[in-house]
Amino acid sequence: MKSRALSFLLAFVFWVALTWSLDWQYLLTGVIISLFIAWAVGDILTRNPWKFKQHARYIWAVYYIWVFIWEMVKGNIDGAYRILHPGLPIKPGIVKVKTNLRSDSALTYLANTITLTPGTFTVDVDSENGYLYVHWMNVETEDIDKATEIIIGKYEKILGKIFE
């Protein structure tokens, strides 16, 4: 029930921000659509609503956003360099990475972060054993532990504090 209430609130806030108008017709439409969304998919938003009450998670999330933006800028400059370089300095390969994160949302965000940061994107997730298969544009090492340290060392701890 709490999960449904939260998804109603989230959907309604998104609606108000997208229409950016306090006219009663917009608000009424928004309430109806948000109620429908909460009824249809509300129960899959979260399994543990009490997590939303822990304030430390939000502070870590703000810190994570800054780390993520900085890594994304670096990743794009690196990618642009590799594309524009006449010699095409790439050494691609799919490596295996081990993660300790278990919850679905943490794994989703970890995979998305890997995809948007320098030279790597996630091909598949093996959530039972905690492995990620990562396509790496410039393979530095094939060893699982070293690759884990290089690719996800920075994000895993922060994401664990936000979602686990």
Binding site: G75, N76, G79, I94, T115, L116, G119, F121, M137
Partner: peptide, 15 residues
């Protein structure tokens, strides 16, 4: 410019 599907995905997704 890039050689195969996986490398092209790098360009199309990130940049």
């Amino acid at each position: 410019r890039l050689p195969d599907l996986y490398n092209r995905l790098h360009a199309s997704i990130k940049c």
